[in-house]
């Protein structure tokens, strides 16, 4: 039997070693990631996009590469980006990431992008923005009135927004679908942690989401499309090896289980248990 400590060491090594020694396994781009990329790629320069940071700090290593890749694409395409947070911790993370990425592309605050800050009670904030964004966010994160921000002059509600992306680690994308997509019909996509991704496949199939980025793999795929390697691709080797190690650990656990069962069956011949 493997001890718990040995399993922990194996997992730690399987994550750490590939981060130091690059393996470079080829990554395939999935349809759902390509759809997000194409939805942004098809937008004309100056089109308005909305990105909502709907996550906590705990999932930062997984959601940050996705958010960064999407923001890079937006600034590369010279889109106008409205950002906000519907979870409190997403505020500081989103603001910093936005500032860093905007600096990479010399984007100007108020003209190319704006950060509206955080609003509690996601349902009413999402519904409210469908009527009038200024009513939900009269001021941006820096307490500047939206009336004084040039970029926001002609933007009233979702009608002017070409695509909304929720960068989330929970089920807030479902809230966006329920309250924004169902009622106001904007185009919507989400970038979410791998563990949550499967929950959103029904919305992809129904067309309520145009695409989806699932965890570090989603970020890596987006970076391939963007031809700009980042944190996603860097982490994929580590994720591949750690998945393999977990599979091998499970297989070994079953081998031990069946060997023990066989031994106990031999010891007690009256047993009628049927092995798999």
């Amino acid at each position: 039997m493997l001890s718990r400590q040995l399993i922990f060491v194996l997992i730690a090594l399987s994550v750490a070693i590939p981060l130091v020694i690059k393996i470079g396994l080829p990554n395939q781009v999935t349809t759902e990631v390509r759809n997000v990329y194409e939805s942004i790629e098809q937008l004309d320069s100056g089109s308005v996009m909305m990105i909502s940071f709907d996550h906590e700090a705990s999932s930062l290593p997984e959601v940050k590469p996705m958010a960064q890749a999407i923001l890079r694409h937006c600034f590369q395409k010279k889109l106008k980006v409205i950002t906000l947070a519907l979870m409190a911790e997403g505020t500081a993370i989103g603001e910093q990431l936005l500032r860093e990425t905007a600096n990479e592309y010399q984007a100007n605050y108020g003209e190319d992008y704006v950060f509206l800050g955080y609003r509690p009670q996601a349902q009413s904030a999402i519904l409210g923005m469908g009527e009038e964004i200024k009513r939900v966010f009269p001021q941006d994160y820096n307490n500047t009135s939206l009336d004084r921000i040039p970029m926001m002059k002609d933007i009233k509600n979702y009608n002017e927004v070409k695509l909304i992306i929720s960068v989330a680690d929970g089920d807030l994308p479902v809230t966006w679908v329920d309250y924004a997509v169902s009622r106001y019909h904007p185009k919507f996509a989400c970038a979410t942690t791998a563990v949550m991704a499967t929950s959103f496949y029904p919305f992809l199939s129904s067309g309520q989401m145009v695409g989806l980025l699932g965890g570090l793999k989603g970020a890596a795929e987006y970076e391939i499309l963007l031809e700009k390697p980042g944190m996603g691709q860097k982490g994929m080797d580590a994720q591949s090896v750690s998945h393999l190690v977990i599979v091998l650990i499970i297989v070994w656990g079953n081998v031990v289980y069946f060997l023990r069962r066989k031994t106990s069956t031999v010891d007690s011949p009256r047993s009628t248990a049927k092995p798999l």
Partner: peptide, 27 residues
């Protein structure tokens, strides 16, 4: 402080999942 602590807690899941999978995932 806050972000690294929360990320650490989340990352620990990988270790516990592996350990639980080894013990519980039996055919």
């Amino acid at each position: 402080i806050q972000a690294p602590m929360q990320s650490t807690m989340f990352s620990l899941l990988a270790f516990f999942v592996a350990s639980a999978a080894y013990r519980g995932f039996r055919a």
